[in-house]
């Protein structure tokens, strides 16, 4: 399937073009295999729907619907034709809350994952590349952070830093990198043993060149699979931290809606329409990222026999 594209005489191409063509083919192969994975595709579609919802929310619901003083409904109105998901304790439209919540939940989840991936990949590659004291230290450091229980650490950090959108992103980002670092280090160690790295070293390539030009492109697919799994964990973490009141007090996310519902006594009022939708959204989004991540892992894992 990919054989025809190599018909061009390689001698007429620059080395860079050859490298790019090879990478494009590798990614194309990955995409082709992914399309055949049914669970992965279902996850991808679900993911797309939620991203679309987050992007279209400002067009669908005015932000004034989040304002308690401008609420139009009654207290705990059950679902009706006007309010599809009922109203909360101050008469706000739960559907609008959940739609606006998707924006913060996805934003925090994605940004925190970027931080965690950058730290995790950098530490992992360096810990695998440098032998001796520096690499050993990084490795120890990863081990230490891996052991510290996530939620207590995140709680302590969030308390010390104060409550804001940026801080919750930082807290989730800097507490969730060790797992990635572990994985990337193992992959780096296996890449380091290959002959082309020895060749690069023999030609005088520096550490930075070796790591960015040879190791990084090779661990990239694994980083991608891990990223999608990490997004799901970040979204769950955001929900938990916001539920505990550690999120931005002015931003509406799925976690903060659940926090409001819990503190406002939605449980004893039997207001299931206030509790269920944000949670279902979290489950669906996290499931979507999990399905995509698992599908990618299945494809990239040499032991995997496919789904």
């Amino acid at each position: 399937m990919t054989g025809q594209t190599t018909a061009v005489d390689p001698r007429t191409l620059s080395p860079r073009a050859i490298v790019w063509a090879r990478r494009r083919r590798a990614w194309g192969r990955l995409a082709g295999q992914f399309r055949r994975n049914r669970a992965g595709m279902a996850g991808l579609v679900l993911m797309g729907l939620f991203v679309l919802l987050a992007l279209l929310t400002p067009l669908l619901f005015s932000s004034s619907e989040l304002d308690v003083t401008q609420a139009t409904g009654g207290v705990y109105d059950p679902p009706s034709a006007q309010y599809w998901l009922g109203t909360d304790d101050s008469g706000r439209n739960v559907l609008a809350l959940v739609a606006w919540g998707s924006r913060i939940s996805l934003l925090v989840g994605l940004c925190a994952t970027v931080i965690s991936m950058v730290i995790g990949t950098a530490v992992g590659i360096m810990a695998g590349h440098y032998r001796g004291v520096f690499g050993g230290l990084l490795d120890r450091f990863t081990d230490w952070f891996l052991v510290i229980p996530f939620l207590p650490l995140a709680i302590v950090l969030a308390t010390v830093l104060g409550r804001s959108l940026l801080n919750i992103i930082i807290v989730i980002g800097v507490t969730s990198w060790p797992g990635t670092a572990r994985l990337i280090r193992a992959q780096t160690l296996s890449v380091e043993g290959r002959p082309y790295l020895e060749r690069a070293r023999a030609l005088g390539a520096g550490n930075t060149h070796q790591m960015t030009r040879h190791v990084l492109p090779n661990v990239m697919p694994l980083v991608l699979a891990n990223t999608t799994l990490a997004v799901s964990i970040s979204i769950l973490s955001e929900t938990t931290l916001s539920f505990l009141g550690l999120g931005d007090p002015t931003a509406v996310s799925w976690g903060s809606i659940l926090d409001d519902a819990f503190s406002a006594g939605a449980i004893s009022q039997g207001a299931w329409w206030y509790l269920a939708p944000p949670g279902i959204c979290v489950v669906l989004v996290v499931l979507a990222f999990n399905l995509v991540g698992r599908a990618l892992e299945d494809i990239l894992d040499p032991h995997g026999q496919g789904a």
Binding site: S232, L236, T239, T240, F243, G255, L258, A261, F262, A266, I267, G270, W272, L275, A276, P278, G279, V282, V283, V286, L287, N290, L291
Partner: peptide, 17 residues
Amino acid sequence: LVLYSMPEFWFGMILLI
């Protein structure tokens, strides 16, 4: 997989209600 994607406190609240 669905259970794995669930915030445990939300599941608790649903059981409560």
